[in-house]
Design a protein around this nucleic acid. Structure first.
Lengths: 244, 244
DNA sequence: AGGACACTGTGTACGCTAGATACAGTTTTG
DNA sequence: CAAAACTGTATCTAGCGTACACAGTGTCCT
């Protein structure tokens, strides 16, 4: 919560623009090792377990030594993300933008399943590293053959990502409050007690689900994009409509 | 971080199931006043400014007095949400499920604009109060005339809500990293420096946007739902297809 | 009726976690 | 040798939370 939030410095760190020092003792570790350690802690004990002290201890250091590598916890989180995201899925095997986007969604979901804490921090106003950026770039490649605007492609990509995040079971933000999570049974009880005030909800949570929210939502999303895309394709392919 | 996380107790608090004590001194305040004070602090100074100490001081109390009203900060947040959400928009004026959902989205957006911190905490696995629950109920009412399953209606509602949240300008989670927010200019610079590695992204962020992400996304979402709905309507309206 | 007692509200003191700063000691290279 | 860089000890700060003492207020028993 101090003045350690310099986005420029973070950008230099993430994009490898730090000039290594010439004199002084060799650092015992490097950023990658530090990030991997933090990621391991987060994977095994949850993101809350990741503290400066904990990570340092894991490396046999005191926490103050970490401040030579990162300016604060914000930067630690940033390099953790870069270390954990991995590489985006290969979309060249899928035919057509729709299949490619589905493949992308699968890849994103898989990455987040490997690191359940990831979707909860890859969020908001922040500086991203090259690895994470590569995911956006890859996703955009799925839509190059469509008649969408560059900006619309970006919007579409963000929507798919947001949807996967919102329906991610272990995500802090995504849990479907009514159907999943530890609070869901409590909410069901309350709805039953107040079925008169909330009849629609009460019945909705009572019925079992046939498809998952994620599937249903992704279907709707892609259907919506398809409509715009085919419509544009027609407008462009045919001659412009007669004036009225 | 302690054992003060009893969801049952929270539920009783939110749903007015606490039996008021019979003896002892009269409390100087009540939950509503407490919640309103906290909301005011969050509105004017941001959610980070809301601490037990701060809220208590605002009421002329020491922070420990607050613990007679709420069991901890989690409960304080919960009653803040209830105090801030207000009542859901009236959808009866809109004709058809699509217009109703759009109206709902507008109402949600307006409520979050009044309390910019709200979307960032009405999230995840948690117990909701009756006021907030009323929003879900209202949203479901938009879809009663559709051939969707009860569960699918809930899914659709959650999707719209998630989308509004994800595209909420001031939301901690929603900021479109590439186009909005304080980090966006930094990311643009980095993309220009690395245009070779990220050609699609570099051009996408360079062009000005004609429509907003929110509009484009909502359109796609509703188009997608419409496709499923009209398709179902046809399948039900006509006689079942001949067996093959 | 009246007082003891239990229960409730409020305040003071303290504990704990976690991030972060200050600075001294030590190592390495120009 | 001196400047720069790595690491450790000590300390500060913010914030949530517990422990406990003291002060009102109703309940119940005699």
């Amino acid at each position: 919560m101090s003045a350690n939030e310099d986005p420029r410095a973070l950008a230099e760190l993430l994009w490898g623009l730090r000039k290594p020092p010439t004199r002084g003792p060799r650092p015992a570790f490097d950023l990658a090792r530090l990030a991997d350690t933090a990621v391991k802690v987060a994977d095994t004990e949850g993101l809350e377990a990741v503290s400066m002290h904990r990570v340092a201890a894991e490396l046999g250091l005191t926490k103050m030594a970490l401040y030579r590598y990162v300016n604060g916890k914000t930067e630690l989180m940033a390099i953790m993300i870069e270390a954990a995201v991995g590489t985006p899925p290969d979309l060249s095997g899928a035919a057509g933008w729709r299949a490619k986007l589905e493949e992308y969604a699968r890849g994103l979901s898989a990455a987040w399943r490997r690191h359940p804490w990831l979707p909860s921090i890859t969020v908001g106003d922040r500086v991203m590293g090259p690895r994470e950026t590569a995911w956006s770039e890859r996703a955009l490649s799925a839509l190059t053959d469509t008649p969408l605007t560059e900006r619309e492609r970006l919007d579409a990509v963000m929507m798919v990502s947001h949807h996967i995040r919102a329906t991610h079971p272990a995500a802090t933000q995504g849990t479907q409050t009514w159907t999943d999570g530890s609070a869901a049974p409590i909410m069901r009880d309350l709805l039953l007690l107040n079925a008169g005030r909330f009849p629609l909800l009460a019945t909705a949570v009572a019925v079992p689900s046939t498809t998952t929210t994620r599937e249903f939502g992704l279907l709707a999303l892609l259907d919506g994009l398809e409509r715009t895309i085919t419509q544009r394709t027609h407008d462009n392919g045919a001659s412009p409509p007669d004036p009225p």
